[in-house]
Design a protein around this nucleic acid. Structure first.
Lengths: 196, 196
DNA sequence: TTGAAAAACATGCAATCTGCATGTAGGTAA
DNA sequence: TTACCTACATGCAGATTGCATGTTTTTCAA
């Protein structure tokens, strides 16, 4: 991410530590018990911080959750791009990007955070903004690069929803192979293999 | 729905009235302000009922919400089946069913209730049960009837997710035509038109 | 018809939680 | 050193949830 430049002032270091402790504690508890069933007293207890510190760094409990989700989204996007970078062509990039996505979404609790609680707590618009800046954006560019015609933005959005549902299904114990196969089939249907 | 058979006992009538008033008031408020931001005092005020009556009929606030969502899901399923019934073949049934779905999801607040708040409040498993008994089930049978091979259950699930995302996008002001076109394209890709 | 039992509600309370307002300690800059 | 600012601590007010405990209708059998 960002290296701890040694010339940071003590206040900046303190703030970063507190913020990080809060994000970390909140991530763990939100992932385990859900956003609604986790109270701020429990979060600050786990972070070894007071509620005052929380409300100094974040507007409210939802803002803290937003911080958690943004960090998760950034991690997922990084893993997708890392996978896609190893691709040989645009269609291969889609397939490899999909692998990267599923690998990233296998992180414990991530499905609950990003796909279950985030839409309700942050609202669909805020979430789509985060998505566009991370996973959704690369998917759309991937479709365009693969030469898909038609309403590419809408197609990318729908395909993104299918990805999410697949990750959700796998996380809740469904047959992972079947869902990966189904996703592959969708990609093939939209971006014909013979095109690459 | 169900005709008021004249031989119902007064208690049954009273209970049904109270339940109905609660479901109706809750539906309106949950749709407008969301599940988390609606308190039970406000619900019972609108329903002209006391909180005691609420907790007599429902285990908790979440159970009331489940009642609302189940009613919504039943209404959506009914509209889908009504549309699909007019189809001439299995593939046409998919397309007409899609129209029915989008028509049903245009009901004010329904997207928020079913696609935003329900997953977080009821949990994905409870929601998938409701979905399987309503929209998801007909979609899967539709794909099977259309002769789709492969992991049909997974494909139906992913396609269902795409439908949901399209309804969400349209409800939040996206280009409806583009999303309907994208859905049509997905159906065409999975169930080739020449097959019918 | 009546009276006991059950169903359907009504009321009040205890435990929490959230957000903020106000107070304090440590850091910064002139 | 001093005045100010950032980062945090503490306490409080309002609201909410779920339940425990009354009260009022219905039911049903004698």
């Amino acid at each position: 991410m960002q290296n701890k430049s040694p010339d940071r002032t003590p206040n900046e270091i303190r703030s970063a530590r507190t913020r990080s402790a809060l994000i970390g504690a909140a991530r763990a508890l939100f992932a385990e018990k859900g956003f609604a069933d986790t109270g701020t007293p429990e979060i600050v207890r786990r972070a070894s911080v007071t509620r005052g510190a929380l409300y100094h760094h974040f507007d409210d409990k939802t803002a803290l959750f937003r911080g958690v989700v943004e960090a998760e989204a950034a991690a997922v996007a990084a893993e997708i791009e890392a996978s896609a970078r190893r691709a040989v062509g645009p269609r291969d990039a889609l397939v490899r990007g999909a692998d990267g996505y599923f690998g990233a979404m296998a992180a414990p609790g991530r499905v609950r955070l990003m796909l279950i609680d985030a839409p309700a707590a942050l609202g669909p618009d805020a979430l789509s903004v985060i998505d566009a800046a991370t996973g959704g954006g690369v998917l759309r560019r991937g479709l365009e690069a693969a030469g898909v015609d038609g309403p590419v933005a809408a197609l990318a959005d729908l395909l993104s929803a299918a990805f999410d549902r697949a990750a959700l299904a796998i996380a809740t114990g469904a047959d992972a192979a079947a869902y990966r196969d189904a996703i592959r089939r969708m990609i093939d249907a939209l971006a014909p293999p013979d095109r690459t």
